[in-house]
Computed example of a mutant assay.
Amino acid sequence: MGGIPWPAAGSILSGIGTLLLLWYLREHRGIPSANWLLLTLVAQAVWCFAYGGGLLVFDPTLRWAFEALTWIAIV
């Protein structure tokens, strides 16, 4: 039984949901508080995709790169 493991699928779907929210909120750019929210959502989307991608990769070097990106986005 193959397929994508549920933690990876959930993380990738969360990233897609975050991108949809960013698209919906794009008209509020320029408002100071909205800019910070959009920046936070970008970091969240990067984290979701990096974490989901890291769960699907088995090459140690590539996995390290995904994990480093995950930690950068979380900070």
Rank of each mutant, 00 (worst) to 15 (best):
A8K: 02
W47K: 15
I74N: 07
L21M: 09
P7E: 00
L41G: 08
F66L: 09
L38P: 07
A9C: 01
I16A: 05
G10H: 01
E27N: 12
L19E: 12
G52M: 02
W71T: 08
L37W: 04
G54P: 01
Y51D: 04
A34N: 15
L21R: 11
W23T: 13
A34H: 15
A9Q: 04
T61Q: 06
Y51E: 02
L13K: 10
S14H: 03
R26Y: 08
W47Y: 14
P32Q: 10
L39K: 15
F49I: 03
W23C: 04
G2R: 05
G52N: 02
A43S: 14
L21V: 12
L56F: 01
I16K: 09
W71I: 10
L38R: 14
Y24H: 11
P60T: 05
G17M: 07
L41C: 10
S33T: 15
D59T: 06
S14M: 04
R26Q: 12
S33W: 14
P5T: 03
G2M: 03
G52W: 07
L37E: 10
E27S: 13
L22I: 15
E27I: 05
Q44N: 14
A50T: 12
G15C: 04
V42M: 10
A43L: 15
L62K: 05
F66Y: 13
I31A: 09
E27T: 10
A43V: 04
S11W: 08
W36Y: 15
L55A: 01
G54S: 03
S14V: 01
I72W: 06
Q44Y: 00
G30T: 15
A43D: 12
T70G: 04
P5K: 01
I16M: 12
P60R: 03
A43R: 13
F49L: 00
I72L: 12
A43F: 09
F58N: 07
T61N: 08
I72P: 03
P7G: 01
G15Q: 03
A45R: 13
L22Y: 11
L39R: 14
A34P: 10
V42G: 06
G3D: 01
L55I: 05
P5H: 05
P60N: 04
R26P: 01
A8V: 00
I74V: 13
L62P: 02
V46P: 02
L69A: 14
A8P: 01
L20G: 01
G2Y: 09
L13C: 02
T40E: 08
I4K: 00
E27C: 06
S14D: 08
T70E: 07
G2C: 00
A9Y: 03
L62T: 08
Q44C: 12
A43P: 05
Y24S: 06
W36R: 15
L37T: 15
G2A: 06
V46Q: 08
R26N: 10
L56V: 00
L39Q: 14
A8S: 10
W47F: 11
Q44P: 08
P7F: 03
I4M: 11
L41H: 04
V75T: 13
G15S: 07
